[in-house]
C-alpha cells in the first residue's frame, strides 16, 4: 500500500544540543495503524510534533500525501489531526464550542452535522453542552480526539492516548481507533503499553535514542524475533542441569523443571535431540509446556541492543 506520510532524513537538535531525532526515515502506509514504541525520551513525541508543525525540524523532509509540511504546510496540515499526550483543554469551555473552534482553525466551515457524528462516535453527544471541567479524565481524552477529528483528517496522530486511563477505558479507546481505521483514517499512535501495540497495530515501529530501530508488520515481527521457551517437567525435579545435557540452552525452573529456549523459526529447534538425550541423563519426562515470547520481550531486547 502507498505511503501517505513520508519522512526522510529527519533530524532535530534542540537549542541545548540534545539530538532528539537522528536522521529518521519512515514511511507510513495509507489506512494502517502504526504503533511507535519507545522508552521515555526516545523521540516519539518530538517525531509527532515535528510532523504536525509544533516543532521545527533541524533538517530533512516530511510530506503528507505529497505535500511538504514546511513549503506547503496548509495543505499538509489539513490532512493531519493530532491528539496530544497531555490533556490540554480550556476548562470553562463547553464541549461543542471547543470542537467547533478546532474545526474553524482548520478552515472548515460550520458543519454541526459532522460534529454531531464525531461526538456520537465518541459517546460525547450527551455531553455536548457540558463544560470541560465537569468531565471525567476519560471523557476529556475523548474530547481531544473529537477536536482532532473535527476537520475530518486522513492521518491521525495519537500521542499516548491511553496513558493513565483504566483498562476498561483503554479497551474502549481501542474500539474507537479501530472504528476510525475502518473509516479509512491512517493512525499513528505512540504508546508505552506493549499490549496496546499488540492488540491494535498493523505495524510496529520501535524508536530509541532518536533512531527508528525497526518498523515491521506486527505478526512478522513477532514471528521473526519471537523466541519460544519450553518448560520440561520431570518425574524427579532437578537442582542443576545434568552434564549430559550441557550442550543445550537449559536453565533450571523455579520448581525443579528444565527451561529450554529455542528459536521457533530456526532450521532445527533441537527439541527431538533434547528429548532423546533426557533418558541418557537419567531423567523421566512428565509434562511439557511451551510459551511464545511477547512483544514486550522483543521490545526490551531491541532497546537494550540485544536483538541482533
Amino acid at each position: 500500500m502507498a505511503d501517505i506520510v513520508t519522512i526522510r532524513n529527519l533530524t532535530k537538535t534542540y537549542g541545548d544540543g540534545f539530538e532528539a531525532l537522528k536522521s529518521v526515515n519512515l514511511g507510513i502506509r495509507k489506512g494502517e495503524i502504526l504503533a511507535l514504541l519507545g522508552p521515555n525520551g526516545a523521540g516519539k513525541t518530538t517525531l509527532i510534533s515535528t510532523v504536525c508543525g509544533i516543532t521545527r525540524p533541524t533538517s530533512g523532509t516530511i510530506t503528507v500525501r505529497g505535500h511538504d509540511t514546511l513549503k506547503d504546510f496548509r495543505a499538509a496540515r489539513r490532512l493531519i489531526g493530532l491528539v496530544p499526550q497531555e490533556i490540554s483543554l480550556e476548562p470553562f469551555e463547553r464541549v461543542m464550542n471547543t470542537v467547533r473552534f478546532s474545526r474553524g482553525l482548520f478552515g472548515g466551515g460550520r458543519d454541526d452535522a459532522h460534529l454531531e457524528r464525531v461526538l456520537r462516535q465518541l459517546s460525547l453527544w450527551d455531553k455536548r453542552d457540558a463544560r470541560i471541567l465537569e468531565l471525567s479524565g476519560g471523557m476529556k481524552r475523548r474530547v481531544l480526539i473529537a477536536k482532532a477529528l473535527s476537520h475530518d483528517p486522513r492521518v491521525l496522530f495519537l500521542d499516548e492516548p491511553t496513558a493513565g486511563v483504566d483498562v476498561e477505558l483503554r479497551r474502549d479507546m481501542w474500539r474507537v481507533v479501530e472504528g476510525l481505521k475502518a473509516d479509512g483514517v491512517t493512525i499513528i499512535l505512540t504508546t508505552h503499553y506493549i499490549e496496546e501495540a499488540e492488540a491494535i497495530a498493523d505495524r510496529i515501529g520501535i524508536i530509541a535514542g532518536g533512531d527508528i530501530l525497526l518498523v515491521e508488520e506486527k505478526a512478522a515481527l513477532m514471528q521473526r524475533m519471537g523466541q519460544k521457551q519450553m518448560e520440561i517437567q520431570l518425574q524427579d525435579p532437578v537442582t542443576e542441569v545434568p552434564a549430559a545435557l550441557a550442550d543445550f540452552d537449559l536453565q533450571i525452573g523455579g520448581d525443579g523443571t528444565l527451561i529450554y529456549t529455542y528459536d521457533a523459526q530456526g532450521e532445527r529447534t533441537g527439541i527431538t535431540r533434547l528429548f532423546s538425550a533426557l533418558p541418557d541423563a537419567g531423567l523421566v519426562l512428565r509434562d511439557v509446556q511451551t510459551r511464545q515470547s511477547s512483544l514486550e520481550d522483543i521490545f526490551v531486547n531491541l532497546v537494550n541492543g540485544d536483538a541482533a
Partner: peptide, 13 residues
C-alpha cells in the same frame, strides 16, 4: 499556559 497552543501551531494557519 494550559497547553492548548498546540492546536494553533498545528493548524493550517
Amino acid at each position: 499556559f494550559i497547553g492548548t497552543i498546540y492546536e494553533l501551531l498545528s493548524a493550517p494557519a
